[in-house]
Every structure is written in C-alpha cells, then in structure tokens.
C-alpha cells in the first residue's frame, strides 16, 4: 500500500535546544548558515507577569499535498513521491533555477552554495531506507516530533491525529495542505510568507507557453491547409509542378 508520511508535532514540549537542527545538519552535511529545519518562537509579553511564556515551534518541509514548489518546477525535478508523499528533489534533473526556493511560503528550501541546487528536508529518506527514524525525530530530547505513515491506521501518527486535536501552520492565501500537524494551541501561526513565482517562471507560464502553443498551432494549421489543398486539389497544381512531373 502507498505510504503517506507525516509528522505530528507537540510543540508545547519543545525547549528550543537545537538538537534537531544539529542532528539534521550533520546527517545531511548542510552548510553553515543554511538549515533544513528550524525552531520558530513567539515573543514573550512580560506584562503577563508570572504567566509570561514563549512557545517554541519546531518545523521543516511540510511535504505539502498542494506543493507550490512542485508547481514552480517546470521539469519535475522537484516532485511529490506518490509512494511516500515526500516531496523530493532530483538533483540530476535540476538546473538550479531557484523557482522552488521562492515558491515555498515556509522558507523550507535553500539553494546549496556548492551543489547549486535546492536542498530541503526529505524526511531523511536514506535513514528510512535503513530502518531509522528521521534524524530530528530520533534525537529530539522531549520527543516533540512523531513521525509515521498516516495511511497506516495503527501508526502512532494516525492515533495522534485521531485522538488529539491538531492544526496546521498554513500559508495564506494559498493553502498548501501541509503534512506537518501540530497539537492545537501551537504558536506562532502567522509566519508563513506569500507564495511567489519568479519573473522568469511567470513569463514562461503566462507568455512564452501560450505564445509557443499559438505559433506552433498556427504553423501546424498552415501546414495542414497546404497538405489538404495538395490532396484535394491535385489538379490545380502550379505550373512548375505540372512541368516537373514527368
């Protein structure tokens, strides 16, 4: 059966220890200054006195069901694996155009400075193949992150999704339908940015693609017309033709 991996995150137990971030960084050799995952937080309001708090929110690529990054990739180098639900990057097909990096409203992607292709969380595909949990999930001290297959009704994530009230951190105005679920009460919720497609991509979809279709279409129509004329009006050939045909 097809799997659909997801994460259910209890952000109320995240203590911002950075364990997941270092674990991920080491696992994937993420260069300095770049991250495949993050911990967001609220700002404390000290007027609350003894109840002043900070809520930490660990996250990473949300492996969306409505993936704007995939839509921004003309070649399918970024694609959603239908077997696992994981959004992958086929580095061999990628030309490093950067469309997907800006198309992600969560900032989940960065352009690798040496490989010059985008990089992002892939739920540690290699570790899954080895039978290990994703690096961030495995290492998390307070086990804020639960990982599993939501198509499997017996999985821990399915149980949590059934028994607990969960919400998603979603970009506006495009609901990318993320597969990162947070226990209700998660904060902050307003950080995702807009979905942006670069000018080159907009030019391709909005102008070049229709233009090419029209040009090829017209040309095709012309050829078809000539061909039809040649078939149905073989009598009315040009003088050249009649003379040439021996």
């Amino acid at each position: 059966m097809k799997k659909k991996y997801c994460m259910v995150i209890d952000s109320s137990v995240c203590i911002d220890c950075k364990g997941c971030m270092v674990s991920c960084k080491v696992q994937h050799k993420v260069p300095r200054g770049r991250w495949r995952n993050w911990i967001k937080h609220t700002e404390p309001d000290f007027t609350m006195g003894k109840h002043t708090f900070v809520h930490f929110q660990p996250g990473n690529c949300m492996q969306c069901d409505n993936p704007t990054c995939v839509y921004a990739c003309p070649s399918g180098a970024t694609y959603k694996d239908e077997e696992t639900g994981i959004v992958h990057i086929n580095e061999g097909l990628c030309i490093g155009c950067g469309n997907c990096v800006v198309a992600c409203p969560y900032g989940a992607r960065y352009r690798h400075p040496e490989k010059r292709v985008p990089d992002k969380c892939d739920f540690c595909r290699d570790r899954l193949d080895m039978g290990l949990l994703p690096a961030c999930v495995d290492t998390c001290p307070t086990k804020a992150r639960t990982f599993g297959d939501m198509n499997d009704p017996d999985s821990e994530v399915s149980r949590l999704l059934r028994d607990r009230e969960t919400v998603r951190v979603v970009s506006k105005p495009v609901d990318t339908e993320p597969n990162l679920f947070y226990m209700a009460g998660v904060m902050p919720l307003d950080w995702p940015g807009p979905v942006e497609y670069p000018a080159a991509y907009r030019a391709m979809t909005g102008f070049v693609n229709p233009l090419v279709k029209i040009a090829v279409g017209l040309s095709g129509l012309g050829v078809a017309a000539m061909f039809l004329k040649q078939i149905f009006t073989s009598d009315e050939t040009s003088e050249d033709d009649s003379r040439e045909e021996v």
Partner: peptide, 13 residues
C-alpha cells in the same frame, strides 16, 4: 537519557 541526544551530542562529530 530517555533515548535522546541533544545538540552538543550531535555535534560530537
């Protein structure tokens, strides 16, 4: 350690 490793442990490499 409740089966965990913190940022420092991960940085042992």
């Amino acid at each position: 350690s409740r089966g965990m490793l913190c940022a420092r442990g991960n940085a042992a490499t």
